[in-house]
Protein backbone atom coordinates (compact mmCIF):
# COMPACT_ATOMS: atom_id res chain seq x y z
CA UNK A 1 0.00 0.00 0.00
CA UNK A 2 1.52 3.35 -0.96
CA UNK A 3 2.09 5.60 1.99
CA UNK A 4 1.14 9.24 2.12
CA UNK A 5 3.12 11.81 4.07
CA UNK A 6 1.56 12.33 7.47
CA UNK A 7 2.01 15.08 10.01
CA UNK A 8 2.24 14.55 13.77
CA UNK A 9 -1.51 14.18 14.06
CA UNK A 10 -1.53 11.66 11.28
CA UNK A 11 -3.25 13.99 8.83
CA UNK A 12 -2.34 14.43 5.20
CA UNK A 13 -3.20 17.27 2.88
CA UNK A 14 -5.86 15.22 1.11
CA UNK A 15 -7.81 14.69 4.37
CA UNK A 16 -8.30 10.94 4.14
CA UNK A 17 -10.84 9.18 6.32
CA UNK A 18 -9.83 8.77 9.95
CA UNK A 19 -9.93 4.98 9.59
CA UNK A 20 -7.58 5.11 6.62
CA UNK A 21 -5.15 7.29 8.53
CA UNK A 22 -5.27 4.83 11.42
CA UNK A 23 -4.67 1.90 9.08
CA UNK A 24 -1.63 3.59 7.60
CA UNK A 25 -0.24 4.49 11.01
CA UNK A 26 -0.83 0.93 12.19
CA UNK A 27 1.06 -0.39 9.17
CA UNK A 28 4.00 1.86 9.98
CA UNK A 29 3.88 1.07 13.69
CA UNK A 30 3.92 -2.64 12.93
CA UNK A 31 7.30 -2.08 11.33
CA UNK A 32 8.50 -0.63 14.62
CA UNK A 33 7.91 3.04 13.77
CA UNK A 34 7.41 4.63 17.17
CA UNK A 35 6.52 8.01 15.72
CA UNK A 36 3.61 6.41 13.91
CA UNK A 37 2.55 4.72 17.12
CA UNK A 38 2.87 8.03 18.95
CA UNK A 39 0.49 9.57 16.42
CA UNK A 40 -1.98 6.75 17.08
CA UNK A 41 -1.73 7.39 20.82
CA UNK A 42 -2.25 11.12 20.43
CA UNK A 43 -5.16 10.68 18.04
CA UNK A 44 -7.08 8.37 20.36
CA UNK A 45 -5.94 9.05 23.93
CA UNK A 46 -8.79 11.38 24.89
CA UNK A 47 -11.56 9.15 23.57
CA UNK A 48 -9.99 6.10 25.17
CA UNK A 49 -9.65 8.05 28.41
CA UNK A 50 -13.33 9.00 28.22
CA UNK A 51 -14.23 5.31 27.95
CA UNK A 52 -11.92 4.35 30.81
CA UNK A 53 -13.18 7.20 32.97
CA UNK A 54 -16.75 6.21 32.32
CA UNK A 55 -16.11 2.63 33.38
CA UNK A 56 -13.84 3.02 36.39
CA UNK A 57 -14.75 6.60 37.52
CA UNK A 58 -11.43 7.30 39.24
CA UNK A 59 -9.22 9.54 37.00
CA UNK A 60 -5.95 7.97 38.20
CA UNK A 61 -7.23 4.45 37.56
CA UNK A 62 -8.49 5.58 34.16
CA UNK A 63 -5.07 7.00 33.23
CA UNK A 64 -3.40 3.74 34.24
CA UNK A 65 -5.88 1.78 32.15
CA UNK A 66 -5.26 3.96 29.11
CA UNK A 67 -1.50 3.46 29.39
CA UNK A 68 -1.96 -0.26 29.85
CA UNK A 69 -4.27 -0.41 26.85
CA UNK A 70 -1.79 1.31 24.54
CA UNK A 71 1.03 -0.92 25.75
CA UNK A 72 -1.10 -3.95 24.96
CA UNK A 73 -1.81 -2.52 21.54
CA UNK A 74 1.92 -2.04 20.91
CA UNK A 75 2.66 -5.60 21.93
CA UNK A 76 -0.17 -7.02 19.86
CA UNK A 77 0.14 -4.96 16.69
CA UNK A 78 1.61 -7.94 14.88
CA UNK A 79 -1.60 -9.87 15.39
CA UNK A 80 -3.99 -7.08 14.41
CA UNK A 81 -5.47 -8.20 11.13
CA UNK A 82 -7.36 -5.04 10.35
CA UNK A 83 -10.69 -6.87 10.11
CA UNK A 84 -12.18 -4.28 12.42
CA UNK A 85 -11.29 -0.60 12.66
CA UNK A 86 -8.29 0.17 14.81
CA UNK A 87 -10.33 2.27 17.23
CA UNK A 88 -12.83 -0.57 17.68
CA UNK A 89 -9.99 -2.89 18.60
CA UNK A 90 -8.47 -0.29 20.90
CA UNK A 91 -11.74 0.47 22.70
CA UNK A 92 -12.39 -3.23 23.25
CA UNK A 93 -8.99 -3.55 24.86
CA UNK A 94 -9.55 -0.65 27.24
CA UNK A 95 -13.09 -1.87 27.97
CA UNK A 96 -11.85 -5.33 28.88
CA UNK A 97 -9.14 -3.84 31.06
CA UNK A 98 -11.77 -1.66 32.74
CA UNK A 99 -14.05 -4.61 33.37
CA UNK A 100 -11.17 -6.64 34.77
CA UNK A 101 -10.41 -3.71 37.05
CA UNK A 102 -14.02 -3.55 38.23
CA UNK A 103 -14.02 -7.28 38.94
CA UNK A 104 -11.01 -6.87 41.19
CA UNK A 105 -12.53 -3.88 42.96
CA UNK A 106 -15.93 -5.53 43.21
CA UNK A 107 -14.54 -8.24 45.44
CA UNK A 108 -14.17 -5.53 48.07
CA UNK A 109 -17.66 -4.09 47.58
CA UNK A 110 -20.34 -5.46 49.85
CA UNK A 111 -23.33 -4.60 47.71
CA UNK A 112 -23.83 -3.88 44.05
CA UNK A 113 -27.39 -2.90 43.18
CA UNK A 114 -26.98 -4.00 39.57
CA UNK A 115 -27.40 -7.55 40.90
CA UNK A 116 -30.96 -6.60 41.68
CA UNK A 117 -31.45 -5.54 38.06
CA UNK A 118 -29.34 -8.11 36.27
CA UNK A 119 -31.36 -10.80 34.60
CA UNK A 120 -34.51 -10.45 32.57
CA UNK A 121 -36.19 -8.61 35.38
CA UNK A 122 -37.81 -5.61 33.76
CA UNK A 123 -41.26 -5.27 35.27
CA UNK A 124 -44.23 -5.60 32.97
CA UNK A 125 -45.17 -2.16 31.72
CA UNK A 126 -41.92 -0.58 32.89
CA UNK A 127 -40.76 1.74 30.16
CA UNK A 128 -38.65 4.74 29.36
CA UNK A 129 -40.82 7.76 30.12
CA UNK A 130 -42.04 9.30 26.84
CA UNK A 131 -40.62 12.68 27.69
CA UNK A 132 -37.29 14.42 27.20
CA UNK A 133 -35.53 16.75 29.62
CA UNK A 134 -35.36 19.37 26.89
CA UNK A 135 -31.58 19.25 26.36
CA UNK A 136 -30.49 20.47 22.94
CA UNK A 137 -29.07 17.80 20.62
CA UNK A 138 -25.30 18.06 20.59
CA UNK A 139 -25.41 20.73 23.32
CA UNK A 140 -26.44 18.75 26.37
CA UNK A 141 -23.80 20.53 28.45
CA UNK A 142 -25.03 24.04 27.88
CA UNK A 143 -24.71 24.85 31.54
CA UNK A 144 -22.12 23.78 34.07
CA UNK A 145 -24.94 22.64 36.36
CA UNK A 146 -26.24 20.26 33.72
CA UNK A 147 -22.79 18.73 33.30
CA UNK A 148 -22.50 18.28 37.05
CA UNK A 149 -25.97 16.74 37.22
CA UNK A 150 -25.09 14.25 34.47
CA UNK A 151 -21.84 13.37 36.21
CA UNK A 152 -23.59 12.92 39.56
CA UNK A 153 -26.15 10.66 37.91
CA UNK A 154 -23.40 8.60 36.29
CA UNK A 155 -21.59 8.31 39.60
CA UNK A 156 -24.66 6.92 41.32
CA UNK A 157 -24.99 4.07 38.81
CA UNK A 158 -23.59 0.71 39.79
CA UNK A 159 -20.40 -0.40 38.06
CA UNK A 160 -22.28 -2.80 35.78
CA UNK A 161 -24.90 -0.26 34.80
CA UNK A 162 -22.34 2.47 34.15
CA UNK A 163 -20.11 0.13 32.14
CA UNK A 164 -22.87 -0.95 29.73
CA UNK A 165 -24.00 2.63 29.28
CA UNK A 166 -20.48 3.77 28.41
CA UNK A 167 -19.84 0.80 26.14
CA UNK A 168 -23.04 1.50 24.26
CA UNK A 169 -23.18 5.30 24.19
CA UNK A 170 -19.50 6.17 23.89
CA UNK A 171 -18.15 3.15 22.06
CA UNK A 172 -21.27 2.09 20.17
CA UNK A 173 -20.72 -1.57 21.06
CA UNK A 174 -23.33 -4.15 20.09
CA UNK A 175 -25.26 -6.18 22.68
CA UNK A 176 -23.34 -9.26 21.57
CA UNK A 177 -19.95 -7.64 22.05
CA UNK A 178 -20.95 -6.18 25.40
CA UNK A 179 -22.20 -9.58 26.54
CA UNK A 180 -18.89 -11.14 25.55
CA UNK A 181 -16.91 -8.41 27.29
CA UNK A 182 -18.91 -8.71 30.51
CA UNK A 183 -19.35 -12.47 30.44
CA UNK A 184 -23.13 -12.43 30.61
CA UNK A 185 -26.13 -12.91 28.32
CA UNK A 186 -27.46 -10.33 25.87
CA UNK A 187 -30.67 -10.31 27.94
CA UNK A 188 -28.68 -9.22 30.96
CA UNK A 189 -27.00 -6.50 28.92
CA UNK A 190 -30.40 -5.21 27.79
CA UNK A 191 -31.69 -5.26 31.34
CA UNK A 192 -28.67 -3.36 32.66
CA UNK A 193 -28.88 -0.87 29.83
CA UNK A 194 -32.59 -0.31 30.41
CA UNK A 195 -32.20 0.30 34.14
CA UNK A 196 -29.15 2.53 33.65
CA UNK A 197 -31.07 4.66 31.16
CA UNK A 198 -34.12 4.84 33.41
CA UNK A 199 -31.96 6.12 36.26
CA UNK A 200 -30.23 8.65 34.01
CA UNK A 201 -33.56 9.83 32.69
CA UNK A 202 -34.95 10.26 36.21
CA UNK A 203 -31.84 12.18 37.28
CA UNK A 204 -32.02 14.48 34.25
CA UNK A 205 -35.72 15.11 34.82
CA UNK A 206 -35.05 15.95 38.46
CA UNK A 207 -32.26 18.33 37.48
CA UNK A 208 -34.50 20.15 35.00
CA UNK A 209 -37.27 20.37 37.59
CA UNK A 210 -34.91 21.94 40.15
CA UNK A 211 -33.53 24.37 37.57
CA UNK A 212 -37.03 25.42 36.58
CA UNK A 213 -37.95 25.95 40.23
CA UNK A 214 -34.84 28.12 40.67
CA UNK A 215 -35.78 30.23 37.67
CA UNK A 216 -39.34 30.52 38.92
CA UNK A 217 -38.31 31.88 42.29
Amino acid sequence: MPTKPLNRQGESTSHPRAEDVDAELVAQARKGDKNAFRSLVERHQHKVYAVALGIVKNPDDARDLVQEAFLKVWKSLGSFQGQSAFYTWLYRIVTNLGIDHLRKVRAKVEYDDSRVHDEHDIAEGDHIVPQTAGLHPGRALESKETGLAIQRALDTLSDNHRAVLVMREVEGMSYRDMARAMGCSEGTIMSRLFHARKKMQAALAEHVKVEQMKKGT
Binding site: Q45, A50, L154, R168, E169
Partner: peptide, 22 residues
Protein backbone atom coordinates in the same frame (compact mmCIF):
# COMPACT_ATOMS: atom_id res chain seq x y z
CA UNK B 1 -31.03 12.58 24.78
CA UNK B 2 -29.65 10.28 27.48
CA UNK B 3 -27.00 8.96 25.10
CA UNK B 4 -25.95 12.47 24.06
CA UNK B 5 -25.74 13.59 27.68
CA UNK B 6 -23.53 10.66 28.72
CA UNK B 7 -21.28 10.94 25.70
CA UNK B 8 -20.87 14.70 25.88
CA UNK B 9 -20.17 14.68 29.61
CA UNK B 10 -17.52 11.96 29.46
CA UNK B 11 -15.84 13.41 26.41
CA UNK B 12 -15.86 16.90 27.93
CA UNK B 13 -14.37 15.61 31.16
CA UNK B 14 -11.71 13.64 29.30
CA UNK B 15 -10.97 16.59 27.01
CA UNK B 16 -10.49 18.89 29.97
CA UNK B 17 -7.84 16.60 31.43
CA UNK B 18 -4.21 17.24 30.67
CA UNK B 19 -3.38 13.87 29.26
CA UNK B 20 -0.02 12.82 27.92
CA UNK B 21 -0.14 9.07 27.60
CA UNK B 22 2.94 8.99 25.40
Amino acid sequence: EIGDAVREQLEARAGASKLDVW
